[in-house]
Amino acid sequence: MIRKTRKINKMRGSRTIGGGCSKKRRGAGHRGGRGKAGGHKHMWSWVVKFDPDRFGKSGFKRPLKTINKPTTVNLDYLDDNAEKLVEKELAEKKGKKIIIDVTQLGYDKVLGNGKITKALSIKAKEFSKSAIRKIEDNGGEAVTL
Rank of each mutant, 00 (worst) to 15 (best):
A124F: 06
K97S: 08
G95N: 07
D108T: 06
K96E: 09
G35L: 05
T5Y: 12
G32Y: 00
L64V: 15
G38P: 04
A28L: 12
S130A: 11
I116R: 01
G19H: 14
K84T: 12
G140M: 05
G32M: 01
N68C: 09
C21R: 11
G140W: 02
I135T: 01
G59N: 02
L90A: 09
P70I: 03
I122K: 00
G27E: 02
K93Q: 14
K93S: 04
R34F: 12
V143H: 03
T66P: 06
G114K: 02
V102T: 06
T103C: 01
H30G: 12
I116N: 00
K123T: 07
R3P: 15
G114T: 00
R54F: 10
F60I: 13
K88C: 07
G20P: 02
L90N: 07
H42I: 13
E87R: 12
K97I: 09
D53Q: 11
R26I: 15
Y77C: 08
D76G: 04
K23F: 12
N81K: 15
V47F: 04
Y107K: 02
F50Y: 15
A91F: 02
R15Y: 07
I132Y: 04
E87D: 09
A142Y: 06
G95M: 01
R31S: 13
S130W: 02
G114H: 07
L145T: 03
G27W: 06
T16N: 06
R62E: 10
V143A: 00
G95V: 02
N81G: 09
G39D: 09
K23H: 08
G29H: 11
A82K: 06
L90M: 12
F60S: 09
K97A: 11
T71P: 09
V102N: 00
D53E: 14
L120I: 01
I116A: 04
R25T: 04
I98A: 00
S128V: 06
H40T: 15
N138A: 11
L75A: 00
S130R: 12
T66H: 08
K41W: 05
G56I: 05
R12M: 14
G33R: 00
A37E: 08
F55Y: 15
R26H: 11
D76R: 10
E141T: 12
G27C: 11
E87C: 05
A142N: 04
V73S: 06
K134A: 04
D101W: 01
S121L: 10
V102P: 09
S121R: 15
E87Q: 12
T16F: 01
L90K: 14
K88G: 01
S14R: 09
R133S: 10
